[in-house]
């Protein structure tokens, strides 16, 4: 954000916060302190996001249930019925278990990417730590993921009699798609301030990512010459970990390294890049 350093003023009896505005970057510690002061704001923006989402709709929250079910129906028809893909579980359960983490990743990336421009009314008029925006934009995707988990639970209870103990780890397995989505979204948000093409390119890229990730198909159904795509794709691990925990399989450990590398890289590039873009975007929005 802005180059602002705060220190408590010992001379002043009123001990007001002193803010120094000057050009130049800020330390990570400063950003973290600013962010820590803003939890109330994050919570409020999250609530606002959720409220606005289905305000003035007749079906309201029911859309959050209908939307993933329709996707599963499409997948089931295309892959399960027409493509005759063999899965270890009933196909709807299998694809839903992939759709929840992938949907989270994809929605978080999309919303983070547009978080600066869609909140232009705030960004161009008032100061607050800008990282609040990507953070609070995760509310709706997280709610969708929670609803997805509830649906999965219902589907699992119907199609099999017992639930695996590893189900308790499923929420934990959502941390990876969340982190990946945020990282990707931060890079895209920073780029899209100057390169508007990113806004059109991101949905395309996410569709390709969906194709290259074992969401609608199991990874062993991939022909050998394309297997490297699944292996190197960081989203594969995000889907695999979650699906393994829901279905009680053992996850594929070879997927973890590329996923962790990608997450760390995206954050290392995206975070400073996002702050630089946020600093200048009031001039260009």
């Amino acid at each position: 954000m802005l180059a602002v350093r705060q220190y408590s003023d010992t001379r002043s009896p009123s001990a007001l916060r002193i803010t120094r505005i000057c050009p130049g970057g800020d330390s990570l510690a400063f950003h973290l302190r600013e962010l820590a002061r803003s939890f109330g704001l994050v919570a409020l923006l999250m609530r606002k996001d959720l409220l606005l989402r289905y305000r003035d709709t007749y079906l309201g929250l029911a859309w959050a249930i209908v939307q993933p079910l329709v996707t599963v129906l499409v997948f089931w028809f295309a892959f399960g019925v027409m493509g005759k893909i063999r899965t270890s579980e009933a196909y709807p359960l299998f694809s839903m278990a992939g759709l929840v983490p992938f949907g989270l990743l994809s929605a978080v990336a999309t919303r983070t990417a547009s978080s600066l421009s869609s909140n232009a009314y705030l960004v161009s008029r008032v100061y607050f730590p800008r990282f609040v925006l990507p953070l609070s934009s995760t509310a709706a995707p997280l709610l969708d993921a929670a609803i997805g988990c509830a649906l999965l639970l219902a589907m699992a209870l119907v199609s099999r009699n017992s639930l695996p103990w590893s189900l308790c780890l499923a929420p934990l397995a959502l941390v990876l798609p969340l982190a990946l989505g945020l990282g990707l979204g931060l890079v895209a948000a920073a780029l899209s301030v100057t390169v508007r093409d990113v806004r059109a390119a991101l949905p395309v890229a996410l569709q390709l990512l969906l194709l290259g990730t074992p969401v609608a198909y199991p990874s062993d159904a991939v022909p050998e010459q394309f297997a490297f795509i699944v292996t190197l794709n960081p989203a594969s691990c995000a889907v695999d970990l979650f699906r393994a925990s829901v279905l009680g399989h053992s996850p594929d450990p070879s997927l973890i390294a590329p996923a962790l590398t990608a997450t760390i890289l995206l954050w290392a590039v995206g975070l400073p890049f996002f702050h630089r873009a946020a600093r200048s975007c009031a001039d260009t929005l």
Partner: peptide, 26 residues
């Protein structure tokens, strides 16, 4: 109001800032 950055120079503020910067008020 810390919405945009100066190119050089500095400004020192004591306390919180309240900004009503245009007609729509954010």
């Amino acid at each position: 109001a810390r919405i945009t950055v100066p190119t050089s120079g500095e400004a020192i503020l004591r306390g919180e800032v309240g900004a009503l910067l245009d007609v729509a008020a954010g």
